[in-house]
């Protein structure tokens, strides 16, 4: 069964005096006392201008300090990044230099010279071949790291907030 909605009561705007009354609640006419609406007559605490100015100055100071700290941090990070980049360059150069040293150390002439002079080895006048039943060990040439392997790195995952920003025009 459908219910019949009740009619809403008419809205009555609160009565306000046409002219502001003194906050003391006293009627302008001597001897006449007019009842004050509820909530009137409460003394409000005043915030002094000095306090406001102090807070404003403090806020400006805090913002300024944050900015200075941020700038300092960015500058420090910038120098750190540059130092790390230089270190990386130095390390890369070291790696290349060490690789070249390793290669030079296994130079065939050098090995032969070391074998004959330092170790006193001589070429055999006659060589003997002996057959074995086991397979010969794999030939391991030195050095063998020079052919770089291709690294397939997965791209970094995109965070949810990056996806949200991506939707917003002009935020790409």
């Amino acid at each position: 069964m459908a219910s019949i909605p009740h009619a809403a009561p008419p809205r009555v705007s609160p009565q306000r005096p046409s002219a502001p009354l003194p906050r003391t609640g006293q009627h302008p006419m001597p001897g006449a006392v007019r009842p004050m609406p509820e909530g009137w007559g409460v003394t409000r605490r005043r915030i002094s201008r000095f306090t406001i100015a102090s807070f404003a100055l403090l806020a400006v100071g805090v913002v300024g300090l944050v900015q200075v700290l941020q700038t300092t941090h960015v500058a420090a990070t910038g120098y750190e990044v540059r130092a790390l980049e230089r270190e990386q360059q130095d390390l890369d150069a070291d790696i290349r230099s060490l690789e070249a040293q390793i290669a030079s150390s296994s130079n065939l002439d050098r090995i032969q010279k070391d074998a004959t002079t330092r170790l006193g080895m001589v070429r055999p006048a006659q060589s003997v071949r002996v057959s074995e039943d086991v397979a010969a060990p794999a030939l391991v040439p030195l050095p063998r790291r020079y052919v770089p392997t291709q690294e397939h790195l997965d791209p970094p995952a995109i965070a949810w907030w990056e996806r949200v920003l991506g939707i917003i025009p002009g935020m790409h």
């Binding site: 890369d92 290349r96 070249a100 296994s106 050095p143």
Partner: peptide
């Protein structure tokens, strides 16, 4: 850019660059 190496069949650098 650093110049790449020329390697022999065993991976030994016949020509390489250092900084």
């Amino acid at each position: 850019a650093s110049r790449g190496a020329i390697l022999d069949a065993t991976g030994y650098p016949l020509a390489t660059s250092v900084d």
